[in-house]
Amino acid sequence: MTGAGSEERLSPALRTEALEELLTERGLVDPDAVDRLITQYETNVGPLNGAKVVARAWTDPEYRRRLLDDGTAAIKELGFGGLQTECLVVVENTATTHNVVVCTLCSCYPWAVLGLPPSWYKDPAYRARMVREPRTVLAGMGLELADDVRITVRDSSSEVRWLVLPERPAGTEDMSEEQLVSLVTRDAMVGVAKVVAP
């Protein structure tokens, strides 16, 4: 931890560099493995995976049924799974039911389908308030829900991970699965936004 008392605070960038040196010079961590893990989450594993799952569910009723029945198995069909997504439960948002995901204890998040969490998801204000006043929090994030919409907050307190299947917006009936993929946002798959037609 950073030095206590009146000592000048060392920047996290410098401390990270120091940690990396200490571990790599003793052969405990391979710097190439560090690079690979970073590249993995910067380029390969992100919300595009989840968008493909959602677009498939919107266009294939049998897949949608399997996805809601066993999320882990259904995303595996598309080649997705792995770290922080041992058990995935998919819940559907409709005109009258709204699910939104949080982790109040840390920042658990379904990495395999959404990548690493965005800054707002890790923010104390989101973690603290989403389980206490979700309607107010969602409005503050730009999502106003009608009074008759029933909200369920999914607090990720075990290794179970949650993914929201957003409602398919009206006006997208003629769009292909590939076109739909580009509409689906990370925010909608966490439940802090809706998908909107182009």
Binding site: T104, S119, A125, R129, V131
Partner: peptide, 13 residues
């Protein structure tokens, strides 16, 4: 942190 106060407004995406 669940339910605690004092963290200010949420950050919009």
């Amino acid at each position: 942190m669940g339910g605690t106060e004092g963290w200010g407004p949420v950050r919009p995406p």
